[in-house]
Design a protein around this nucleic acid. Structure first.
Lengths: 190, 190, 190, 190
DNA sequence: AATGAATGAGCATTCATTCAT
DNA sequence: TATGAATGAATGCTCATTCAT
């Protein structure tokens, strides 16, 4: 309904011009409604942006989670997860990735973004754990998840800018994840 | 000299409050000079921020590069590179990481940041290549570098927020890099 | 009926927050009706405020007038008038005095307030005249009434803020009025 | 200098259109400066209005006080005080009286106005006391001063609207004051 | 009769930027 | 050289007012 229309417009404008460089006028114009409506529904520019973030993050997390069947064998599970992740990015370039990029524009949203990222990290951490037959107690699965999510974001950025094919990127990430699961480095060092 | 003083002040203020939320007044006050001086030297806020980015990126790249002895064996080379990278972040939290974070605040700097990141990616790509005895022609070293740099940034962020010890983080990254160097995924899949 | 309910709400809100600082939303909420009703009945905020003024002024004048028995001897007449006046203020602090104070907030109401005040001045002027046995032709009864009404308003303000007891204030005003009735200043000058 | 120019413009505009109905644009235009100057010097509209009030009240009190020679005999003292008061009003119609009227437009200024009025009341109270040979202990000189100041304001309003001649008004006020000084009402009642 | 939903128009405030000295 | 003083241009936000139902 109306709220979605406003959020769509806001996401689009924010993604194109960034948080500070997007005026409420521009958003209202894009949504083809009047500015007071924006304020009626969202109270302030900051809250509007927050609402955008919330929606986009929720959608993202839901979509990725929905693409994963946790009953699959680890390898398939990993593949579906990575593909779900990168496909979402690929199909929602303008909205999510740029929002994600813009979310750091104001101190006010560090919290929301961090929270969203932590959710992803938790998810990945659990994937890692579930995919490792004999977890090495010295292995810092949380930090590994941080690194893998970071790698994923970087690859996702490439995807979102169209510089890379989703499936090639997915293949690489899968490899990286899979290696991340393998035993200790010393196992491979020699 | 005077220029460094201004850039120092600008970096500090930008890192604390972000690009748009930092006023030229605040920077001038911090630098203990007058606003017209800022304009005399840098022409505009945008150019001033660009100058900050340039200097910080250059410093960063130089420092990291200086920490790497390319004549070392691959393993030592990797270790010194990662430690140089994370140590720089750890020692320059306020300035570089936040700048890095802030650099996405305005479309105007996507270019500079991308460029800096590409330099890192190239460097890492070369490291990967030089560390692989029999490079697999199917291996996308560039994309792997993207992923590793992304992982590095994510880990670096944890470091910069003080949530993680530099050496633990380094160890993890080294492992991840090292695994990244190993042959094709199929080599490990079974 | 409905109109009184709206006026009550309006008077209350205006008296608390002032004319410009009271929104139609606030009045509608206070009256527990919808904003369009306010507009249906009163056309505009200005007219609504005008209606408030009219009602309050009418009530005030009527109440004071009703408290006066013009057949009484002058002294009693004066006392009853003053007491009626101040009692009204004391019992209708929130509504009338503040409205009275707020009525000057917009040029639009100078007229109504002036008119109301003139009615009071006329009344007082007639009281003065009727209380003076041998009116001095040089005496400017109208101006005297102006002064006495002003004095009354000032004393009334003290009453309305609770800083003064009604009966003490009444006593003082009666004295002042009474003296005002006495012959020419020269009668007392020596 | 510049500040006076701004205050002059502000006083003029506020006096013509009232506090809420005067925009900062209008004041800046009247002062023939830019809006940022107003904000540089006064911080906000409210503070600007406060500065106007302060200046006008100070000027008023100073001027009236300066017109009074406390070494004069009581009668002359009274006359000079009243004339100083009404003359000031007469000569500063647009600025002071209307400001005085406008000052009640926002809750924010009740304080300043009340304070200014209290200063007047104190002054008048002292005049009353000093002019009374044998002060009646039952006499509430403060309340009498309140009443006389109120009367003065009312008369002053007539003066400020041009409806009355200053000297006629002064004469009446002097009489009223003088009578106010005379003994108890019962002394005159019969 | 009554209102939820919507807006046009305006206003206070800020800030990057530039003269005049 | 260096700056105090000044401003044009925006922008977030509010509110009296009115449709469509």
């Amino acid at each position: 309904m109306r709220e979605q229309q406003m959020l769509d417009a806001a996401v689009q404008m924010f993604s194109i011009n960034g948080y500070h460089e997007t005026s409420m006028d521009a958003i209202a114009a894009q949504a083809e409604i009047s500015k007071p409506m924006l304020y009626l529904y969202y109270g302030s520019k900051e809250e509007l942006f927050g609402a955008c973030l919330d929606r986009e993050l929720a959608r993202f997390v839901e979509t990725v989670r929905a693409g994963i069947d946790f009953t699959q064998p680890a390898r398939d599970l990993l593949r579906t997860a990575v593909v779900a992740f990168l496909s979402y990015i690929d199909e929602n370039r303008a909205s999510w990735i740029v929002l994600y990029t813009q979310a750091t524009s104001s101190q006010a949203f560090a919290h929301t973004v961090r929270e969203g990222r932590e959710r992803m990290i938790d998810l990945v951490g659990r994937l890692l754990l579930s995919g490792t037959r004999h977890p090495d107690p010295d292995m810092d699965f949380d930090m590994m998840a941080v690194a893998l999510v970071g790698a994923g974001e970087a690859v996702a950025n490439r995807v979102s800018t169209g510089d890379t094919d989703v499936h090639d990127a997915a293949e690489l990430m899968i490899n990286l994840f899979w290696r991340g699961l393998k035993g200790r480095p010393s196992d491979h060092a020699h």
